[in-house]
Nucleic acid binder design. Structure first.
Lengths: 248, 248
DNA sequence: GCCAAACATTGATCGAAGTCAAAAACGAAA
DNA sequence: TTTCGTTTTTGACTTCGATCAATGTTTGGC
């Protein structure tokens, strides 16, 4: 359930940090005004479940701040993370009544929610929204397919290296770190969450991180703080094409 | 390269077998007319590569007849299928210059191609197309995520059972087989293609199929012809939720 | 500061799927 | 029919990651 928010009780769309990357990126002032009327903010604490798979959904939303994960579970408890939701990512599916996945807040999380019915109605007469949503969905599909290669064919070590590389690269673009220098970041995920993401057990995750540390590919401070002395070296460990193919 | 087609040199959209499920499903007569102007058919033999990853793409397309597979490969040869393209499925991404995956014809394949530039231009002024494409892309994303659970968490036996169940169900809906009776179908994939789809080796695929046969879950005639005497029994072997959740 | 709970590491052992290798079955072409 | 090549099956053995179990480490509440 919703927890009253402090930092985001209401924000003007024009001042929104995800204004130009979210589903509303292409909207003009007029369209934003109409979105303002159907939007509200919700905040969740780390670990809270935002949506249970199978639940009725009466809203769709954009992640404003924090990280959430999309997971699928089998009855016997086996769990697979099927998406990582970062700021500006979209949650929910227009035209669908019930949620298909669990959404869990990995960190403290703020979402900009839109009431579903009015949002769907607005999509029909606002091509700017469905065009942007199509673009974002195609990106997600590409990410999902890259993840399928990882899950189906990579070794445990390659999986860990790939995850670290993705997080490192995302942080590097945010912080505009020098390309040559060391890259430093904090893991936003527990070992268990990493395991669920990578299709491994948490013990294997721990062992492989220790191995990468022992081999000098990464340095660890505490459990979450990671330094990558040589990004190329880390990239070599991912098993991916080294040449070209610089997405993002 | 294109092979001259015999059965589909030109088909009127109104008579097209995928008219109501493809990207053009929502188009009106007027819009179809404009699509006719930029469309052409191409046919490929089983085994032919339609598109190489990294190649420049000057068209997008709908699968009209046959099956194709979308695969990603690592330099050392490890291959993962990331999508199975059935009639009405869409190939290519508007707004992208080069192909991100290999597309290979699994059976004899006919595609309805649209020149990319005109198609993109038409999308901008034809919400019916982008709306339908959004819907189809969201469906594909769901399928990709279901596949991530399979790749990350299912056992080899569950993977095989899941694949057989998907093909059996698709054929059952096509043939409108009696729900209670036996389901009979031909595997459209080689053992190697199945392995690439499931993230297994072809030996493991072969062994698990033999095991399911030995246990009476399926019957085999030749290498491709499969009979499922009890669909519920097969579903039990997939590891999926048995109750509710009847998609498609 | 102390304690409890959550999170993480490490070790020993096991088992499912991979690898290497050979034989069998099938289909297409001569 | 025979033969060749592809596809599939089966066997023996290995290995990577899972499992079970114990021990460390950090964090936040009192």
């Amino acid at each position: 359930m919703a927890v009253q928010d402090h930092t985001f009780s209401h924000v003007d769309c024009e001042a929104c940090p995800i204004r130009h990357r979210a589903v509303c990126a292409r909207c003009d002032a007029d369209e934003l005004e109409r979105l303002e009327e159907i939007k509200y903010y919700r905040t969740f604490e780390a670990g809270q479940t935002v949506i249970w798979s199978g639940d009725r959904m009466d809203f769709v939303a954009s992640v404003v701040e924090g990280i959430a994960s999309l997971t699928q579970a089998m009855e016997d408890g086996r769990t697979q993370m099927v998406g990582l939701l970062l700021p500006s990512d979209f949650v929910g599916r227009p035209g669908r009544e019930t949620a298909a996945y669990n959404v869990v807040a990995t960190t403290r999380l703020t979402m900009c929610c839109f009431r579903k019915k009015p949002f769907e109605a607005m999509m029909l007469r606002t091509p700017h929204i469905s065009q942007r949503l199509l673009e974002m969905t195609l990106d997600e599909l590409d990410a999902a397919r890259e993840w399928m290669l990882l899950l189906g064919r990579k070794t445990a070590r390659e999986k860990i290296a790939s995850l670290l590389a993705i997080i490192a690269r995302r942080d590097a673009t945010l912080k505009l770190a020098s390309a040559t220098g060391q890259i430093v970041f904090d893991l936003p995920l527990t070992r268990e969450a990493m395991a669920d993401y990578l299709g491994l057990t948490l013990e294997t995750v721990s062992r492989q991180i220790s191995a990468l540390k022992r081999d000098g590919v990464i340095q660890l401070e505490g459990k979450r703080h990671i330094t990558v002395p040589d990004m190329d070296r880390l990239m070599d460990e991912t098993g991916d094409d080294t040449d070209g193919g610089v997405y993002i």
